[in-house]
Lab assay of single mutants.
Amino acid sequence: KKRTSIEVSVKGVLETHFLKCPKPAAQEISSLADSLQLEKEVVRVWFCNRRQKEKR
């Protein structure tokens, strides 16, 4: 599977969401993915990776 490069503008939206809610529910991930025209899996993994980054 190819890596998905995420646009800077999209990263901004994801970051804003992350600050409000670092662990979104599946439904939130779905609606976020739809509005950003990304796959749900890509958004889910982004949040996973972002949470791990917080720990470091």
Rank of each mutant, 00 (worst) to 15 (best):
L38E: 03
S31T: 13
Q27G: 10
D34Y: 02
K53C: 07
S31W: 06
Q27E: 14
K40L: 07
R56E: 15
R50E: 02
V43R: 03
W46V: 02
A25S: 15
P22L: 02
R51A: 08
H17F: 13
W46T: 03
N49W: 01
V10N: 09
R51L: 08
D34V: 03
F47N: 13
L32G: 02
K11N: 12
K53H: 09
R51W: 09
V45N: 15
K23Q: 13
P24L: 03
K2T: 09
K40W: 05
I29G: 00
E7T: 15
K2S: 10
A33N: 00
I6K: 11
R3P: 13
S35M: 13
V43C: 02
E41Y: 02
K20A: 08
V42N: 02
S35Q: 14
L19P: 02
Q37P: 01
E41K: 05
K1I: 07
Q52E: 13
F18R: 02
S9H: 15
K40D: 08
S5Q: 15
K23V: 09
P22N: 11
E7M: 10
E7C: 14
K1C: 08
E7G: 15
S9K: 14
V8M: 15
D34N: 07
Q52D: 14
L32M: 07
E41N: 10
V10T: 10
R50D: 03
K11S: 06
A26T: 12
C21R: 03
D34I: 03
V8L: 15
I29T: 07
L38H: 02
K40E: 14
K23G: 04
K53D: 09
K55V: 11
P22M: 05
R50T: 03
I6H: 11
P24T: 00
K11M: 14
V13F: 08
T16I: 07
R56S: 12
R51I: 05
W46F: 00
Q52V: 07
K1Y: 05
N49K: 11
C48T: 10
S35F: 09
L32V: 04
L14Q: 00
K11C: 09
R44W: 04
W46M: 00
C48Y: 10
A33L: 05
V13Q: 14
R50N: 02
S31M: 13
T4K: 12
I29R: 03
V45T: 15
H17P: 00
C21E: 05
R44M: 05
R50I: 00
W46A: 04
Q27N: 11
Q37K: 08
P24Y: 00
L36D: 09
E15Y: 00
V45A: 13
K53N: 05
I29Q: 05
Q27C: 10
V13I: 09
E28D: 08
A26F: 06
L14G: 01
S9P: 08
K2Y: 10
E15R: 00
P22S: 07
E7V: 08
A25R: 11
S30G: 10
P22A: 08
V42A: 05
E7Y: 08
E28W: 06
C48H: 13
V43K: 00
C21P: 06
F47K: 00
R51H: 02
A33R: 04
E15M: 01
E15C: 00
A33S: 06
T4H: 00
K1G: 09
S31R: 15
T16C: 08
R3M: 12
W46N: 02
L36A: 05
L19M: 13
N49T: 08
C48G: 05
P24C: 00
E39Y: 05
C21I: 05
K20P: 02
R51Y: 10
R56N: 15
D34T: 06
K1S: 11
S30V: 11
N49R: 09
L38V: 09
T4E: 13
V45M: 12
E39W: 03
I6D: 09
A33G: 01
T4G: 10
P24V: 00
V43H: 00
K2I: 08
V45L: 13
S31P: 01
I6F: 07
E7K: 15
A26Y: 09
R50L: 00
S30K: 12
E28C: 05
R56A: 11
A25K: 12
L14I: 04
K53R: 10
F18C: 03
K2H: 09
Q52A: 14
F47R: 04
V43P: 02
K53G: 02
V13T: 06
G12N: 10
T4W: 06
C48W: 11
S5T: 14
I29E: 03
E54C: 01
R50W: 00
V13N: 03
E15K: 03
E28L: 08
Q27R: 12
A33E: 04
A33F: 02
R44V: 01
T4V: 12
A25Q: 13
R50F: 03
P22V: 06
C21V: 02
K23M: 14
V42G: 04
R44Y: 04
C48A: 12
L19G: 06
S30A: 14
R56D: 05
K53M: 12
S35V: 06
F47E: 01
E39T: 07
P24R: 07
V45F: 05
E54S: 04
L14V: 02
Q37N: 13
V45C: 09
R56M: 13
H17N: 06
S9C: 12
L19H: 12
Q27Y: 05
K23P: 03
K40H: 13
K53S: 08
L32S: 03
Q27T: 08
G12A: 10
S30W: 06
S5K: 14
R56V: 12
G12E: 15
H17S: 09
E39F: 03
A33M: 01
L36R: 05
V10Y: 06
S5E: 15
K55S: 07
Q37T: 00
I29C: 08
V13P: 00
L14D: 02
A26G: 07
G12W: 08
T16F: 04
K11P: 04
